[in-house]
Design a protein around this nucleic acid. Structure first.
Length: 423
RNA sequence: GGAGGAGUGGCCGAGUGGCUUAAGGCGGCGGUCUUGAAAACCGUUGAACGCAAGUUCCGUGGGUUCAAAUCCUACCUCCUCCGCCA
């Protein structure tokens, strides 16, 4: 959510900045609602002050017959207050609906652009391997080795589900443990294991609701949602809290499965592990002081890159433009891994800063040493990494001509020292 | 799922319609004393909105009343017991 005061005082600038996102954002109702709200508030509060004063007087008067006139008048005033409060509630609801639907203002460093074609590649790492044969796509490698079974995934659940077997299942588990150990052991993150189902308030806090309910799986008998990313439960850990400055930055990592409807992507990436309704991810989440958020984003990004470097998987980093960043994000770097089987780079991590956008929605604040007033924190998060996509990148990059797949050096301890996955 | 009980400030906890501007304690912060510390003593200590006066917040939403932490109501959460269960 944007700062209502900022919007009031910098309306034109905000509108202009939001326009760089591309899609039309209607802020036209804001000024009228904002002004109406303040009028109702002031009118109601004047009456409440009067009511409080006279009620106290009535309370002090022993002989109530002397104050019958006041009592009758206050009855009238109470009714007026009730009416004003009702109007205020309606105006605030409309205002909140408007504000909750407005995306974040892009960071000043976010490149301006209309679509993903305007994203800026900022670096590449590693050598694309040269194969003496035509590299296969991971769905063929996985099925040939008997470690991925998309057909049975379909039988059990439907399209975009998969069953892992044997060394494939173990490789997924190895990657989760490897990533968590790296981030907790080397990068200073605290491991958390949050709920995979969350309530409406949590989804609203991070920005999935109210706008993107269609993308979420929802439970029928109780009003809960399956998390689309660990960002949601982990960021909401500190919802409605005031943190101590000395505890910042707070850095958490979490493994969770993620559930996405992928509404609107019918026909895209239908084969393989790229776009599943359920996938595993190790997430990194930070709560930081505003002045530290740019530096912390760089660190977060390098923490995610480290995973690919240790796995020796080639990748590039892309600075997303204003037209391509997500609803809540102010700035986003995507890490894209090289997939030789498909001869393209595919997103494997998305590292974002949200500024105070999520913190305001979720009311996550901190108090500076010695300060009286709390301030909003900045929140950041990034994948470190998407596990299914990492597994498929390993299959494609480590495949051998005979159809086997070498196990990356750093994963061997997690794979019982297995050297190679064979059919 | 059934039967009871309970939700008050950072924490504990008093408060059963107006004298609550939420007692008291703990913790935090500042001070006195001290070479320094501890102890003791004194003071101070929530948030939101509003230019301000002021208003609101005692789990959440409704209601009763001139007046609600307090009464009614629905919901949520936690605790105890029973049942079921990994």
């Amino acid at each position: 959510m944007l700062d209502i005061k900022y919007l009031r005082e910098n309306f034109a600038a905000a509108e202009k900045a939001l326009a760089t996102r591309g899609d039309a954002i209607d802020l036209s109702g804001f000024s009228v609602l904002d002004q109406r709200r303040r009028e109702l508030l002031s009118e109601g509060e004047t009456l409440k002050a009067e009511k409080n004063k006279v009620s106290a007087l009535i309370g002090k008067t022993k002989d109530k017959s002397q104050v019958q006139g006041e009592i009758a008048r206050m009855k009238e005033v109470s009714a007026q207050i009730k009416g004003l409060d009702e109007q205020l509630r309606e105006v605030e609801e409309q205002l909140s609906e408007l504000l909750m639907g407005v995306p974040n203002i892009p960071h000043e460093k976010t490149p301006v652009g209309a679509s993903e074609d305007d994203n800026v590649e900022i670096r590449t790492w590693g050598e694309k391997g040269s194969f003496g044969f035509k590299p296969k796509a991971h769905w063929d490698i996985g099925e040939d080795l008997g470690i991925l079974d998309f057909e049975r995934g379909g039988k059990l659940s439907g399209a975009r589900f998969c069953v892992y077997f044997g060394a494939g299942a173990r490789l997924e588990r190895a990657l989760i443990n490897f990533m968590l150990d790296l981030h907790t052991g080397e990068h200073g993150y605290t491991e958390t294991l949050p709920p995979f189902l969350v309530n409406r308030a949590s989804m609203t806090g991070t920005g999935q609701l109210p706008k993107f309910e269609n993308d979420l799986f929802h439970t029928e008998d109780v009003d809960l949602f399956l998390i689309p990313t660990a960002e949601v439960p982990v960021t909401n850990i500190h919802r409605d809290e005031i943190l101590a400055e000395k505890d910042l930055p707070l850095c958490y990592t979490a493994y969770t499965p993620c559930f996405r409807k992928e509404a609107g992507s019918h026909g895209r990436d239908t084969r393989g592990l790229i776009r599943q309704h359920q996938f595993n991810k190790v997430e990194l989440v930070k709560f930081v002081r505003p002045e530290d958020s740019d530096v912390e984003l760089e660190k977060l990004l390098s923490n995610a890159e480290k995973v690919l470097q240790l796995l020796k998987l080639p990748y590039r980093v892309v600075d997303l433009c204003t037209g391509d960043i997500g609803f809540s994000a102010a700035r986003t770097f995507d890490i894209e891994v090289w997939l030789p089987g498909q001869e393209c780079f595919r997103e494997i991590s998305s590292c974002s800063t949200f500024g105070d956008f999520q913190a305001r929605r979720a009311s996550i604040r901190f108090r500076r040493e010695g300060a009286k007033k709390p301030e909003l924190v900045h929140t950041l998060n990034g994948s470190g990494l998407a596990v299914g996509r990492t597994l498929l990148a390993i299959l494609e990059n480590y495949q051998q001509e005979d159809g086997s797949v070498l196990v990356p050096e750093v994963l061997k301890p997690y794979m019982g020292e297995l050297e190679k996955i064979k059919g």
